[in-house]
Design a protein around this nucleic acid. Structure first.
Lengths: 244, 244
DNA sequence: GCAGGATTCAATCGCTCGTTTAAAGTGAGT
DNA sequence: ACTCACTTTAAACGAGCGATTGAATCCTGC
């Protein structure tokens, strides 16, 4: 009921802690991330986490205060790492001036970005990020608004930038919806992961599945964006004629 | 560990049961559906279910055998009702011969269908179907394959039929992917429901949100489908020239 | 090399969970 | 009115949970 104080205490203790303590914390955090992703907050037990981390159950409480605090810390750490990876890759992309790229180059940029995102969402295991995010949407915790603000929204801004370059006539709201249509397609593969073979009527997914899916999503999205731009531009021209 | 026998016993008892027993069962099933959707299998407790159903905890066990059996029965009942609603509406649509409709009429048909699906996914509450499905994807139970086979796949077939009318040159696999791209966009709104206001930077969603979203998805999808058809037709023509 | 704080440990505490039990209640058939 | 199968009830059981305790162990500064 008072997670913040105990988390602050745990953090303070960590600062003064030696190297061995740091190791156990890392092991606990890692085991917690994996198990929370696998079974959810309610389904995972601190005993199992401690066992996987080869640590006494009380050590977990000593370092993290409570199960909820451990969960929030584990989710935060997971997404901090994910954020680092994604922004590191985005940095390379954002260095280039989108306006100086040809349309084909921007489209290729988008395709690559979608493939990276899908690879991240679908694996290779262990890739707890997608699972944790999915669970947060089912049972939002204190972590969800933070995740959205500090991880989802920046990614969305980056995607918005690319799409707006491809469809400059779109209103901000239309831009948002186009991005949703893109990310939604990707997330669907993550969400349906356990039944994808059933849906495709296959025993196992082919090795090229991620690449194939990303390619389809990119093509489908680029067509949708292009058509939306044509409509928006036509609307703008019509408005221009009407006011002229 | 042996859910089927006990479920069979419960069902047999139900057959011989009077009207009052039927009422308690219905109340338990209703309360269970709502609570399982709200908190998931692990998060919901049979005590809370019994309390909401105004029934003794043991009565639940008497009728359903175990918590897992109750869950499977509740999910099954939920989706049976959903299936009835969707197929009833689809019956009207499938009565008309798609081939006799103009392209514009088929497009309008698809738009209406998408709007209905989105209305179903997003509410109005209580609409536990989306939540239960989402949870099943996180923690698959025995119910998931049944849901997919008897509910998802038929819906997918219906959608496939419409899309194949709009894009007759697509291969079955390409058709599947287009349908995924459509449904994925819809599911995204369901999955992001708790953070949609954050994403759109709004306090509350406008009343027209569902209609607006469905309209965007329909337009985006129709453009994607049309472009995919153009590509597939061009590919087919090129193949035809090559073999000629 | 030892004093003292930081860390880990085995053991245990309440508590809530799903489940069970045995007795009481209910109503249709005779 | 009585029977008997069906249903509901209050009460309790054992297991597993998160959390806590106090002693043992480890590490560091002096």
């Amino acid at each position: 009921m008072e997670p913040l104080p105990s988390r602050r205490i745990a953090r303070a203790r960590r600062m003064a802690a030696g190297a061995t303590a740091h190791d156990t914390q890392a092991r606990v955090l890692e085991a917690a991330s994996a198990l929370f992703a696998e079974r959810g907050f309610a389904g995972a037990t601190i005993r199992e986490i401690a066992e996987r981390a080869k640590v006494n159950v009380a050590a977990g409480h000593y370092h993290f205060g409570s199960k909820l605090d451990l969960y929030l810390e584990a989710v935060g750490a997971q997404f901090a790492e994910l954020d680092a990876r994604l922004t590191a890759q985005a940095a390379k992309a954002s260095d280039v001036d989108l306006d100086r790229l040809s349309r084909a180059e921007v489209e290729a940029l988008l395709s690559r970005r979608l493939r990276t995102m899908l690879e991240f969402l679908l694996g290779p295991p262990p890739s707890p990020h997608g699972a944790i995010m999915q669970r947060e949407m089912c049972d939002p915790s204190e972590a969800l608004p933070v995740i959205v603000r500090e991880l989802v929204l920046p990614q969305k801004r980056g995607l918005n930038l690319i799409v707006s370059r491809l469809a400059p006539s779109l209103s901000p709201r239309e831009l948002d919806r186009c991005c949703f249509s893109i990310v939604g397609q990707l997330f669907f593969y993550r969400q349906m992961l356990p039944v994808l073979p059933l849906l495709f009527d296959l025993e196992t997914l082919p090795a090229s599945f991620v690449a194939d899916s990303a390619a389809h999503v990119a093509a489908f999205a680029l067509d949708g964006i292009a058509a939306a731009e044509r409509r928006a531009a036509a609307r703008r021209r019509a408005r221009g004629r009407a006011t002229a």
